[in-house]
């Protein structure tokens, strides 16, 4: 499989069809892989793909990063299904044009939840929670795919991939508040969850604004709460569920539970699944006259 990808990448680079190929390469130790930017055809042998490749590469396509301003006309990117969802969402939000991107799709059987848990094989003990019930193991939007692409039914409603969402929803209200209070107590505002998010695309994040300072920059619980709520609200209907925020959190806070819950809400209220259509408008920038208003007095 990876041979076909390497050959295609070599072809693209030799013909000058793309300026750079973004993919995965061997990392600093055997359990890790690292993102790699390949600009010379002879380097394509460095490309690998296996369940250790957990990083979300569409992050580098986000305009917030400098990469897109380096004069690269066209970028090829290796994408597993969930990353391609993020790319599609970026295109739908006009962050990216479809013809600037060449997507090398890979068939994916799931990735590990954390590099430390890699023991040579992928099993239920170390599989990432997002991979359970995944419907894009065969990617949906590709320019190149090794082998045949079977038809997959992707019309099924989104289900929260983490059991913790359902568990939390069953709890009493004050228990849920207590859970978040304990969890957010650990947050010291490193903003890793923002830095790895492929959809956080503001040039100046609202937490970095100082006039006025909407979110208290101190790692006090007030500021922590408002940061996580704001972050979740900004990602309503946009989060494609790559789960990178939780993986990147150095304190092990499950910050993506908010996003998973909001995905359910958006699906229920507006039957919108982010990351599957290049044209559909984000649910909060459009409206219908007969939207539900059962909560309005």
């Amino acid at each position: 499989m990876i041979e076909a990808i390497r050959n295609q990448a070599r072809l693209l680079l030799e013909n000058g069809d793309v300026d750079v190929v973004i993919g995965y390469a061997e990392g600093s130790d055997p359990s890790r892989t690292t993102p790699i930017f390949i600009r010379k055809a002879e380097d394509v042998e460095k490309l690998i793909y296996d369940p250790r490749c957990i990083n979300s590469l569409p992050l580098y396509l986000n305009k917030r990063h400098e990469y897109t301003r380096k004069g690269w006309k066209k970028t090829a990117i290796i994408g597993k299904g969930c990353d391609i969802r993020a790319i599609v969402q970026l295109i739908a939000e006009n962050q990216l044009k479809r013809d600037e991107i060449y997507i090398l799709g890979v068939p994916c059987e799931g990735v590990v939840s954390h590099p430390e848990k890699w023991d040579g094989s992928l099993h239920d003990g170390n599989r990432a929670s997002k991979c359970i019930g995944c419907d894009v193991m065969t990617p949906h939007e590709t320019d190149f795919f090794p082998g045949d692409k079977p038809d997959v039914d992707r019309s099924t409603p989104y289900e929260a991939t983490s059991k913790n969402v359902a568990t939390l929803m069953e709890l009493e209200l004050d228990k849920r508040f207590a859970f978040w209070r304990t969890d957010f107590d650990r947050c010291f505002k490193c903003y890793a969850c923002r830095e790895v998010c492929p959809h956080c695309s503001c040039n100046t994040c609202i937490t970095d604004e100082t006039t006025p300072s909407w979110i208290d920059p101190a790692a006090h619980k007030k500021g922590v709460f408002s940061w996580h709520l704001t972050r979740a609200m900004h990602l309503v209907g946009r989060c494609t569920g790559c789960g990178e925020c939780t993986r990147a959190c150095p304190m092990g806070i499950q910050v993506d539970l908010f996003n998973q819950r909001m995905k359910e809400v958006v699906q229920e209220s507006y039957s919108y699944k982010p990351g599957y259509s290049l044209e559909d408008k984000h649910p909060l920038i459009t409206y219908k006259v007969d939207d539900r208003e059962d909560f309005i007095k």
């Binding site: 929803m169 004050d174 508040f177 978040w180 709520l229």
Partner: peptide, 12 residues
């Protein structure tokens, strides 16, 4: 509609 659900999940 979405914000209320977010606050509910947060425990408010």
């Amino acid at each position: 509609t979405t914000f209320r659900q977010l606050m509910d999940f947060h425990g408010i």
